[in-house]
Design a binder for these strands. Structure first.
Lengths: 342, 342
DNA sequence: CTGAAAGCGCTTACAG
DNA sequence: CTGAAAGCGCTTACAG
């Protein structure tokens, strides 16, 4: 910057003001400065700027990677958030595997980031308190049990559940199963509510993030209700197990059993046979909205906490069909046996 | 730091040296300083440190997100790199959608990052030259046409191709098809080589990242060789189209047609029916190795450029089977028609 | 409209 | 083994 000032024949402070635009500069001066910056290929030093102004224009993305159980939508959410931040002149810094404890306290204390985005928020998430204590502004993607004072964006599970259940009930399904991931209890709660409002029965089980877990879950679902005709899943890693277990028992999807996923990205939904019907919010949207919330806070917005829920869209693909008729059900086991003997 | 020094009764320089360990400090002094830091909950300011030392301990991850065509393995690679960097005391900063041009030049000039990792490297990637010119140390994940002077890690496509072709030829397949993504030409080249070494025929087509593109690609593959019995794909987004187009023509997978993917993560491979046989390197490994390479350079290593290729593993699932016998082939069309009329 | 100067919180020669 | 001081490259009151 000193070089620029010299070349333009002005003081460094004038260069700085020209750069920030925080005070009027005469046209000719401004032009000389701009020319000098171009000639020298000057870019302001981020550290000097950060040190003095106490603003880094960096935000942290807290991303608890329990390897293996990564939701495939996470990448889209991250990229959405990052693109958006970048457009607004901010950088996104990845903090993976940072849990509450010294790590986070240290990181937050370094003054490196102006704020944080917290992904994968659990119901009782100790990271939240650490951030509050550290005085780091943040917004959550997902939300904890009591988000009271904190901005967040999340999937609107109530709306998603109504969409999912609505579609299935319309198709004549009355006995539904739910497959959760054992971590986020919101989908199940929402589904229970939606089912009871729609007058449908719902049984629910959780499963880990594996094919085998899905197989086991299917068995448990059938034990809970041998006559269920549709399954709603919030556990993309267990779904293949469910589908195969159903196939093994001769239940064809979608003729004998409908299945639908919440929060599975489109290109993944296309991989199953039949392709998976989904209710799915735009993960990129959720990420972008969280960035917006946070930036508003960083710019001094003191409005009460905002909580933005994003509804999903129903994407009909091929894994749901009208419920088998009572007649089908009656003869079901015979038909299934026949198929199995082929 | 001034507070710490006061509380410990020493000078700030002593505190700084105690922190960095770059010169001997008496035990009692060190203890007083450490106690003071604890009492005050002190964490060094990252900007002051960066400004003075010219090292930020931040590395950029250049991640060109052409939305929609994100490889699902990318997330694992990113998380692998980030975890690893974090363990080594570095931060990973996401630069999505940053292409060659002013953006990159600016970012590189800010002095914010000590180095960069470049993902999604194309054969002639203008970002490379920009980084070289800016004097930012970097390593590539993937590599361009002429990586001469630059460190990189990548999938070992030659080895992967040998594995894939080897398995198929062992199973009696002699007429193979390849489905590329139209961006990375290496898989096709490697496959051609592997096929010719194994004495198998290979026809190749490219497709965009969509189901429809996959359908079209299957048609073109059959035009190129109506008798192919196996397909190797490096295009996870088009694979569903291939599978469905095959199904529409009555070709059962794997009995009539084997299919195999390169670079598809395990939990995605489980989603198809039958589950997809893959040849797949550990994306997390590739990411970690790139971090290691870069950090070595940052620490002054001047060894000649290193180029690390990671071989894939063959994961047999269910999408490949022995080639149909000549007899099967002969009666194939009749059999297919029969199935279609059912 | 512009300049001279203090200071952000560290690191690191220089001196003892 | 320890301290006093310069300086990294900016921003921003203060002064004109």
């Amino acid at each position: 910057m000193a070089d620029v000032a010299r070349l333009a024949g002005v003081s460094v402070s004038t260069v700085s003001y020209a750069l920030s635009g925080t005070r009027p500069i005469s046209l000719s001066t401004r032009e000389r400065i701009e020319q000098a910056m171009l000639d020298l290929g000057y870019t302001p030093n981020a550290f000097a700027r950060g040190l003095k102004s106490k603003r880094s224009r960096i935000i942290a993305l807290l991303f608890p990677a329990r390897a293996g159980s990564l939701r495939l939508n996470a990448l889209e959410c991250i990229v959405g958030a990052s693109d958006h931040a970048q457009q607004r002149g901010y950088h996104l810094m990845l903090w993976t595997g940072v849990e509450a404890g010294d790590d986070l306290t240290q990181l937050a204390g370094q003054g490196l980031v102006d704020g944080a985005l917290v992904m994968g928020v659990r119901l009782h998430d100790p990271r939240i308190q650490v951030l509050v204590d550290a005085g780091v502004p943040f917004a959550m993607i997902g939300h904890d049990a009591d988000p009271g004072e904190i901005d967040f964006t999340d999937t609107d599970f109530e709306q998603s559940a109504r969409l999912a259940v609505g579609h299935l009930v319309e198709q004549g399904h009355q006995r539904l199963g739910f497959l959760g991931d054992g971590e986020n209890p919101r989908p199940e709660k929402a589904l229970r509510r939606a089912a009871s409002m729609a007058g449908a029965d719902l049984v629910a089980v959780d499963a880990g993030a594996s094919v085998d877990a899905g197989r086991g879950a299917f068995t448990r679902l059938l034990q809970a209700d041998p006559n269920l005709t549709a399954i709603i899943a919030f556990n993309e890693h267990a779904v293949p197990g469910v589908m195969r277990a159903a196939g093994d028992l001769g239940r064809r999807i979608p003729q004998d059993l409908s299945i639908m996923c919440i929060d599975m990205p489109p290109h993944v939904a296309e991989l199953t046979t039949p392709p998976m019907t989904t209710v799915e919010p735009s993960a990129a949207h959720v990420g972008r909205a969280a960035v917006d919330m946070l930036l508003r806070r960083l710019n001094g917005d003191t409005a009460p906490p905002r909580q933005l829920l994003f509804g999903g869209e129903l994407n009909l693909r091929g894994s749901c069909a009208p419920a088998p008729s009572a007649d089908d059900l009656h003869h079901g086991s015979t038909a299934r046996q026949r198929r199995h003997q082929e």
